[in-house]
């Protein structure tokens, strides 16, 4: 279900804290279960590449958020824009790049 474009104006650099705890739990669930369908439940890779913090070392969260939203044409990575706001994609990007250090 496409979300309203309410958050489209959110600027890059938003902190993790901008997301309410219930919403964070939902996003974490999406990462594990839905991203996990291709990237593995533990994010160590599958049809999609590994998404562990180690594998993403040096990756720019803003770029990752764009990949999440728009997908990677010519590959199996779909655009998640119909299901996620920009704020949510950025939260996931921040989460992926830092989760193993928390």
């Amino acid at each position: 279900m496409p979300k309203l474009a309410l958050f489209l104006a959110i600027l890059p650099g938003m902190a993790l804290a901008e997301i309410a705890p219930e919403q964070a739990a939902r996003l974490e669930h999406i990462v594990t279960q839905d991203c996990g369908s291709c990237h593995g439940l533990t994010l160590r890779g599958g049809l999609g590449r590994p998404l562990t913090t180690e594998a993403l070392a040096g990756a720019d969260p803003a770029t990752l958020a764009t990949i999440i939203l728009d997908g990677v044409p010519g590959t199996a990575m779909p655009p998640w824009r119909p299901l996620l706001t920009e704020e949510e994609a950025r939260w996931i990007a921040d989460y992926l790049t830092t989760k193993d250090q928390r």
């Binding site: 369908s37 291709c38 997908g71 779909p78 119909p82």
Partner: peptide, 8 residues
């Protein structure tokens, strides 16, 4: 138009 594939 094809839609994004969220699960193979």
């Amino acid at each position: 138009e094809d839609m994004p594939v969220y699960k193979m």
